[in-house]
């Protein structure tokens, strides 16, 4: 069975009276072990796809279907989608002042464990584990005590997302421009994190504008999303071609 199956997905955004169609018949299949890159012009609907899949309020699916393994995503609340293994690394991670990173992550891990009927990790084990993960993405463990993303730099926020990916070990990871705004070293840290997460059992959807990231995380497929549809798919050579020629020749 495929890991992610998106079929003829149409979605709109906005309040009832002024709905705007963004996704217009999108198809995507991700099998276990695969890395898919999604590229495309600004405003083409890449983040919208990620938001619709993860159930962000404000979007309406008007047609088509989306499944994670055998679960119909449309029937699940956002937190339930997370609990069955859907992970979104945000393009713009949000700050939650007053809630420490540590507390947030423990709540997250506990919720996932509870949903799966597993035992909660004991706090000491958890702290040890999360400290190691922080160090592995080049974040000082001191960051764990700070409010979630509170006052983090752009790059720190992105590394925090990857740390969460490594902690939660989801089935499907959607990374929305996690490479944007990173310096060269941070880019490598992030890529190395994703490669560490990757296995034959899970899948990665990488939304990016830059071929550069794909030098580090090698995709099995590259798709071009334009005007709410995938208009071209290929292997990693497509990314190189896009780097060269832009999107104009496709649209």
């Amino acid at each position: 069975m495929s890991l992610l199956q998106v079929t003829n997905l149409h979605a709109t955004v906005g309040a009832q009276d002024e709905q705007k169609a963004i996704l217009k018949g999108l198809n995507l299949t991700v099998n276990p072990g695969e890395v898919h890159a999604i590229m495309g012009p600004n405003g083409s609907g890449k983040s919208t796809l990620a938001n619709v899949l993860s159930g962000r309020p404000g979007y309406t699916v008007t047609e088509g279907s989306m499944h994670l393994a055998d679960a119909d995503l449309a029937e699940l609340e956002p937190h339930e989608r997370a609990q069955i293994g859907l992970f979104l690394a945000f393009q713009y991670p949000v700050e939650i002042p007053g809630v420490s990173n540590m507390e947030f992550l423990k709540a997250s891990v506990d919720s996932l464990a509870r949903a799966r009927g597993e035992d909660q990790t004991n706090t000491a084990t958890f702290i040890k584990h999360i400290r190691q993960l922080a160090t592995s993405v080049d974040l000082d463990p001191q960051f764990l005590k700070r409010g979630v993303n509170e006052g983090f730099s752009g790059g720190e926020k992105k590394r925090n997302e990857i740390m969460q990916l490594l902690l939660l070990e989801p089935k499907l990871a959607i990374l929305d421009e996690t490479d944007s705004g990173l310096d060269i070293d941070a880019l490598q840290v992030v890529a190395e994190g994703v490669n560490r997460y990757k296995s034959e059992n899970n899948g990665v959807v990488l939304i990016t504008h830059y071929q550069r990231l794909l030098d580090y995380i090698v995709p099995d497929f590259v798709h071009v999303l334009a005007d709410g549809k995938i208009i071209q798919s290929g292997d990693k050579s497509l990314a190189l071609e896009l780097e060269d020629k832009g999107y104009a020749w496709l649209t």
Partner: peptide, 29 residues
Amino acid sequence: SKVSDDQLFACQQRGIDSEKAVGMIVNGF
């Protein structure tokens, strides 16, 4: 400040339901 929809969604996306999320944010506050 306001408990924003974005904050709630960020929590939900990590598996934390919205009531627990509000509780956490309020307790932090």
